[in-house]
Structures are given as structure tokens and as C-alpha cells.
């Protein structure tokens, strides 16, 4: 019985470890990506606009946003999609 308990506890730990790793990698999406280092280099340039498109708890639970970022809620996409000039580089972040 004790052995069985230890085995199930070990299984639970492995389960947690696997999911922790999975979560860290995130889910891939078909979009051009920019690393935080790349973003740091171009931040503050006139041609760059940073949009905060976080939603739900990603947005609600957070105290901070990237410096200079504009809030653009995904549910209001129709309201802001034409607001920003097309010739600028738009950087969107969602998490």
C-alpha cells in the first residue's frame, strides 16, 4: 500500500514537471515574432508602435505594461484596427 502511494505521488510529480515544461514553451502561432532583445533595440523609434492586446486575466491580473504601449483590447479590434498608420511597424503583445 505504501509502495503504491509512493508510486502515485511520483506519477503526480512527473505530471507536474511535464506540464511545467510544456507551459514554459508556450503555443506556437503563425505570426512574425520579435524577441524582447530585438524590441528593446527599436523601442522609442517613431516608426514603431507597441500595442497591448492582452485579454482576460492576462490583462486584468497584471499591474504593468510595456513602456509607451497603447492599450488595444482584442474585443474592440474593429474600433482600433484602422486607427494606426499602415506604414508603421506594429508590435503586438498578448501575454
Amino acid at each position: 500500500m505504501e509502495l503504491l502511494r509512493k508510486k502515485t505521488f511520483l506519477t503526480a510529480l512527473i505530471f507536474a514537471a511535464v506540464f511545467t515544461l510544456l507551459a514554459s514553451t508556450g503555443i506556437a502561432a503563425n505570426a512574425n515574432k520579435i524577441t524582447k532583445e530585438e524590441l528593446k533595440k527599436i523601442m522609442g523609434e517613431d516608426t514603431v508602435l507597441i500595442l497591448d492586446v492582452r485579454a482576460g486575466r492576462d490583462w486584468g491580473s497584471s499591474e504593468f505594461k510595456i513602456k509607451g504601449a497603447h492599450r488595444a483590447a482584442p474585443k474592440d479590434f474593429n474600433l482600433w484596427s484602422n486607427k494606426y498608420p499602415k506604414d508603421k511597424t506594429l508590435v503586438l503583445y498578448c501575454a
Binding site: A16, F19, T20, A23, S24
Partner: peptide
């Protein structure tokens, strides 16, 4: 990573049910 921490907590809470 925030999600890493969330999953770590879930693992801890799950593990407690087996102890």
C-alpha cells in the same frame, strides 16, 4: 515564467492529495 509557476502550484496541490 508565470505559467510555469501556475503549473508548479497545480502539481503541488495534486501531490498533496496523494500524501
Amino acid at each position: 515564467p508565470n505559467f510555469g509557476f501556475a503549473f508548479g502550484l497545480l502539481g503541488l496541490l495534486l501531490g498533496l492529495q496523494f500524501l
